[in-house]
């Protein structure tokens, strides 16, 4: 599918709404909820992407990643820390042998409005600093201009540069205009080397939704049915409550199946989700409603 003719199937938005309504009507209780909360924690890419990021801030976040809640030793660590390329070495050092990965946003994040040369340099910087995963953005301007080949080639080039690092391709779905476009962008990313497809940068108001995620999961499923190859998914932005996270897991379970329910194949890009999950987890373990004052903020 390296040509300019990307023939993605149409998406019916109201149909997606119906599907999501059924998912959110699911009741996730007791043992399922506890398992879901643990799973959600293990899938978090704990994120800080600010102009104001400092060594101190990133180090604190890395501490948080390894000490989510020492009261419950059975809890997993988060999957990764997600930072700018310049902070990769800081994070790498702080995380040590914890197993928590370091993901770096690259390719002129968040707008992607730069040359391929700059984007490659950006990516190489992150990789040289030790990033395990690269979160790239697609060129939405080119995509909206209909230059799908340009977008495809860019993804393929960055993928080549990534070597062993896993590549997450951020579609910035909130800028694409329709679910049909989300599907098309997903297919372009998947067919050109994305290991993950990711919804959003978190830098515009319209971030991940269950609806957009559903469309992207369908693209992943269709690719899997055609090729037998698994692609991972990462919704990012706007997911700060456990209940919503659990709905995402339910969506993954129903659209893709249990095989995708590990942090190898599914991630949440989030900064404040972890504490809400911990709040809910503690409630499930010790009973009673909890206060945020008992959970560390980093």
């Amino acid at each position: 599918m390296q040509t300019s003719k990307y023939s993605s199937p149409p998406v019916d938005q109201v149909g997606i709404e119906d599907r999501i309504a059924r998912i959110t009507a699911r009741s996730i209780k007791s043992s399922m909820k506890v398992e879901g909360l643990k799973m959600a924690l293990s899938m978090i890419d704990l994120t800080t992407l600010e102009g104001a990021d400092t060594v101190g801030k990133v180090t604190q976040l890395c501490t948080k990643a390894q000490h989510l809640c020492d009261e419950f030793p059975e809890l997993p660590n988060v999957a990764a820390i997600c930072v700018y390329p310049s902070m990769v070495n800081v994070a790498k050092q702080a995380l040590g042998e914890s197993g928590v990965k370091v993901a770096a946003v690259a390719t002129a994040f968040p707008s992607g409005q730069s040359s391929l040369e700059v984007k490659l340099t950006d990516t190489k910087l992150a990789l040289d600093n030790g990033a395990d995963e690269i979160d790239m953005v697609i060129s939405r301007g080119k995509f909206l201009q209909g230059e799908c080949n340009f977008v495809a080639d860019e993804i393929a080039t960055i993928k080549e540069a990534c070597g062993k690092a896993r590549l997450k391709v951020i579609l910035e779905t909130g800028e694409l205009g329709s679910l049909d476009q989300v599907r098309k962008a997903s297919d372009i990313a998947i067919y050109n080397g994305a290991d993950f497809i990711k919804t959003s940068t978190g830098k515009i108001p319209k971030a991940a939704t269950l609806h957009v995620t559903c469309v992207m999961l369908e693209a992943i499923r269709d690719y899997y049915l055609t090729t037998g190859k698994m692609i991972a998914m990462k919704p990012a932005g706007g997911i700060s409550k456990s209940k919503l996270a659990l709905h995402y897991l339910m969506l993954v379970k129903e659209v893709l199946g249990d095989k995708w329910l590990t942090n190898e194949w599914f991630r949440f890009g989030a900064s404040s989700l972890a504490n809400d999950v911990l709040l809910q987890y503690r409630k499930a373990q010790v009973g009673g409603y909890q206060s945020p004052d008992y959970f560390s903020i980093d």
């Binding site: 938005q13 109201v14 205009g177 329709s178 939704t209 609806h211």
Partner: peptide, 13 residues
């Protein structure tokens, strides 16, 4: 027939 709501107020996309 469904009516798409993208771009409309309250759109969930």
């Amino acid at each position: 027939h469904p009516v798409e709501k993208i771009g409309a107020a309250g759109s969930s996309y």
